[in-house]
Every structure is written in C-alpha cells, then in structure tokens.
Design a protein around this nucleic acid. Structure first.
Lengths: 115, 115
DNA sequence: TATGAATGTGAAGAATTCTTCAACTTGCAA
DNA sequence: TTGCAAGTTGAAGAATTCTTCACATTCATA
C-alpha cells in the first residue's frame, strides 16, 4: 500500500530477473502449460521449479489451476507477454548495437557509416 | 557470447531491479543529468549512488561523460526509456486490477461487472 | 485403502547483492 | 602548490536470494 511506486517497480523487475522464471514466462506466452511440460522444457529439478513458480504466483504474474493430477499454469494477464516482447526487442537491439560497435572497432574505417 | 539469451534477459531485468537504479533511469528519461542533480533528487549517499551508477554503466544502460568538474549521465539508448514506459503501463494495470479485485472482495455482488 | 505419480513446502548452507566506510582521483581556484 | 568540491573505488559485513534436501500433499488407480 504505502510502497512507493519505484520500489514496486524494482520488485517487479527483480521477479523477472531469474533465468528459470524468465523461461517459464516465455513458455506461458503461447498458452497455459502443465508443470510437467515446463519441467520437460526447462531442465531444472522439480523442487527448484516449484520454488520459482511459487515466486511467480506470489507476485501474481501467473495463476495455477489444479486439473486432477496435474497443475496448469498460465500468465495472469497478457500484459506480461507484452512486456516480455518489449524487453526482447530492446535487448536484441542493444546487443546488435554492441556487436556492430565491436565490428567497427575490429576493422576500423572500412566504409565508415556514421550519423 | 555463449550466454543463452534467457540468461542475458534475466541479468538485464536484475539490473533494473533496484529502487535507486530505477529512479536514476527514470530521471534520465527526460534527458542527461549531472550526478549532482541525481543526488539531490534521490536521497542516498554519494558513494551508494556511485555504486549503482557503476552497475548501470557496466550493463551499458547509461553513459557517463565528464564535463569539467562534474559528470553527466545519460541513457545510452532511447529503448531503455521505452521499456520503462511499457513497464509502467503494465504495472499500473496490474495494480489497478488487483485493486478492483480487492474492492470486489470487500463489497461482493454490488453491481457485478464481469466479462 | 495402499501406492505411486505429480507437485509443493520449510529449512539451511551457498552464492549474490547491498550498503557503508575509508581512501583515492580529477579539475578548479585561491 | 595547496585545498576543496565532485565523484569513484575496493573491501567487508549485512541482507537477500538460490539451490537443494527431506518430507508433505493431493489425486488417481490398483
């Protein structure tokens, strides 16, 4: 409640800041998935995955529904998928920027193309 | 180089996952700022701010330029600002969703409005 | 109802990240 | 030069987060 917005934001990003959690969210972008499938795709111990899923549940990024013997996870809102797409786009750009910078440093003045 | 993309992403988000760093990035959204101003706005010890700025520099999110006696920081690409805007939008939505859910739980069945 | 498969949980040590302190640079100006 | 203001840095203890282990739940079915 009294949590300042910038702190809420920081917490939100920290939640995204774990490889397993990122992969889970990305898998869920294509629709709900049972734990079993996540487990098959992610290569991590079951209890570890459970811990990470618990984090995602606590922060409301995903929802879990029991269906008989299995538990199905889903993104709690499509906004999450949107943010991930934005992040991917930006990361890709940043990385390719770095790469072309590197390339330029390696072979300097080869058909220079600056702004 | 051999770092899997999902790990790069996780690192990226972790970098954003700190209140001081978030505030710095938000202040820089409106243009370059000398450390002095950041310090005035953020309320944190100089050495702590420096540490966080160092993190942002290492991950290439910002650039620093010395101008005589002061050091001026800037976002290294407008993409960062874009991501922050996306995040703000999403967070705001998620929070308001939670709030209306809460409201509904508090006064149930008062003019129900579901999909 | 006894079993087993699918998941989840609390706890503890390992690993990371934060904060703070003291000391160090850089540039300017007395 | 000397001194001071503006920032930065390395190091270390504090705090947080991860991973893993042992054990618990929940369902379905034999």
């Amino acid at each position: 409640m009294a949590v300042p917005l910038y702190q809420a934001k920081a917490e939100f990003f920290r939640t995204l800041g774990h490889p397993v959690r990122i992969r889970v969210l990305e898998l869920l972008q294509d629709g709900p998935r049972p734990v079993r499938e996540l487990l098959a795709a992610i290569e991590v111990e079951p209890s570890n995955l459970s811990q990470q899923l618990a984090v995602l549940r606590r922060t409301q990024l995903v929802t879990a529904t029991r269906e008989g013997n299995t538990v199905v996870y889903a993104l709690s809102t499509p906004d999450v998928a949107e943010l991930l797409r934005a992040a991917r786009r930006i990361l890709t750009e940043m990385i390719s920027d770095q790469e072309s910078l590197l390339a330029e440093l390696r072979e300097p003045d080869r058909q220079a193309h600056r702004a």
